[in-house]
């Protein structure tokens, strides 16, 4: 155990001293635990971010297919098929945007510890989401009457698939909102502990932003 070998060994070890390099400090007394106290980003936030990444890849696949057909076609909509109704959809878009705001209100409510505001905000959000889906449904009925079907070539197929998948996500997100609402009624959240509300809100906003992108892409 000469001095020389000793320094050689230390030299090749990673440079940082373990404790200094970390923002995580082990608990005194050594009865360790998950170092969650000093996390910068909560598990819930990381997980939701990852979920959104996955969702984005899913829609990237669908949008990619849509673009292939749209860019590759001579006329869009192809002759004989109806254009998409812009007016109603604008209104619908605004409704969804408002739902994003009510979701924000709900989240702000619970951040202050105001559970009533949280519940009200969640209900409004789900309600607006519901109206959005219903309006979209009626729009579809109209389009089908005008002869636009799933089987109307790529124009019909991509439209219903892409927009339908988004609608399914709205419905799924509504389910999540209702779940959070039910938990809120059981007083599950406080000003300090409401990761689940936040996760739900982030997802809801994602669905709204996704809609904006699809609206710009598909309806124009």
């Amino acid at each position: 155990m000469s001095r020389a070998t000793n320094t050689a060994a230390v030299h090749d070890l990673p440079r940082e001293e373990p404790l200094r390099a970390l923002h995580v400090v082990p608990r005194k007394g050594g009865r360790g635990g998950p170092p969650s106290r000093s996390l910068k980003v909560s598990n819930a936030r990381v997980a939701v971010a990852m979920l959104l990444v996955a969702e984005t890849m899913f829609f990237a696949g669908l949008i990619g297919a849509y673009l292939v057909f749209r860019v590759g076609s001579v006329a869009w909509p192809p002759p004989g098929l109806p254009a998409l109704p812009l007016g109603v959809t604008w209104v619908n878009t605004v409704l969804l945007a408002i739902s994003g705001v009510t979701m924000f209100a709900a989240l702000r409510g619970i951040r202050r510890g105001d559970e009533a505001v949280l519940r009200r905000g969640l209900l409004w959000t789900a309600l607006l989401g519901g109206v959005f889906v219903v309006v979209q449904g009626s729009e579809w009925v109209g389009l089908v009457r005008h002869g636009l079907q799933l089987s109307s070539g790529p124009y019909g197929g991509t439209f219903y698939t892409l927009i339908g998948m988004h609608a399914a996500h709205v419905v799924g997100a509504m389910g999540w909102v209702f779940f959070v609402f039910a938990m809120a009624r059981r007083r599950a959240y406080t000003a300090k502990a409401h990761d689940a509300v936040e996760a739900c809100a982030i997802y809801w906003w994602y669905v709204c932003v996704l809609w904006a992108a699809l609206f710009a892409l598909v309806y124009h």
């Binding site: 990673p14 940082e16 373990p18 404790l19 390099a21 970390l22 995580v24 400090v25 082990p26 360790g32 998950p34 170092p35 969650s36 996390l39 980003v41 909560s42 598990n43 990381v46």
Partner: peptide, 8 residues
């Protein structure tokens, strides 16, 4: 998020 202390 859950690496042990020192586990860079």
């Amino acid at each position: 998020n859950m690496r042990a202390p020192g586990m860079t």
